Amino acid sequence: MPNSSKPCPICRKPRSAEFSPFCSSRCRDRDLAQWFGDGYAVPGRPAMPEEIADEVLRTRED
């Protein structure tokens, strides 16, 4: 079965079925490091600590 037509989002090489959507464990780990190091961000204003606390309490009640 051929690899997906989309390349690895990190290095642009062909994707590997084992590490999809990446080509290798190295690119997968580089992407994870970006998330841990705040290299990626969701647009919007920063959440206030009080909002986060309220959300945690609401999810615990459900």
Rank of each mutant, 00 (worst) to 15 (best):
M1R: 10
M1I: 15
M1K: 12
P2W: 02
P2D: 04
P2M: 02
P2G: 04
N3T: 12
N3I: 10
N3Y: 10
S4F: 10
S4W: 06
S5L: 14
S5K: 10
P7I: 06
C8F: 02
C8R: 00
C8L: 04
C8M: 03
P9E: 08
P9L: 05
P9R: 07
P9C: 06
I10T: 06
I10P: 00
I10E: 03
C11L: 03
R12D: 07
K13I: 05
K13H: 03
P14H: 02
P14G: 06
P14R: 02
P14L: 10
P14I: 07
P14V: 06
P14M: 05
R15L: 11
R15D: 02
S16D: 02
S16N: 04
S16F: 02
A17L: 07
E18C: 06
E18R: 07
E18D: 05
E18G: 03
E18K: 08
F19P: 00
F19M: 05
F19G: 00
S20H: 05
P21S: 01
P21N: 04
F22H: 00
F22I: 06
C23D: 01
C23R: 00
C23Q: 00
C23T: 01
S24L: 05
S25M: 13
S25K: 15
R26W: 08
R26M: 14
R26K: 14
R26P: 01
R26C: 12
C27E: 01
C27H: 00
R28C: 07
D29S: 13
D29G: 09
R30S: 11
R30W: 04
D31N: 05
D31M: 07
L32F: 13
L32I: 15
L32V: 14
L32D: 03
Q34H: 14
Q34L: 15
Q34I: 11
Q34S: 15
Q34R: 15
W35C: 03
W35Q: 01
F36D: 11
F36C: 13
G37T: 08
G37S: 12
G37D: 11
G39H: 04
G39I: 04
A41F: 12
A41G: 06
A41M: 10
V42D: 01
P43M: 06
P43T: 07
P43N: 05
P43S: 06
P43H: 04
G44A: 05
G44F: 02
R45K: 13
P46C: 11
A47L: 14
A47E: 09
M48A: 15
M48L: 15
M48D: 13
M48Y: 00
P49I: 09
E50Q: 09
E51R: 08
I52L: 13
I52F: 09
A53I: 11
D54L: 07
D54E: 15
D54H: 14
V56W: 12
L57E: 10
L57Q: 09
L57H: 05
L57K: 08
R58E: 08
R58H: 09
T59L: 15
R60W: 14
R60I: 14
E61W: 06
E61Q: 12
E61D: 11
D62Q: 13
D62C: 12
D62W: 03
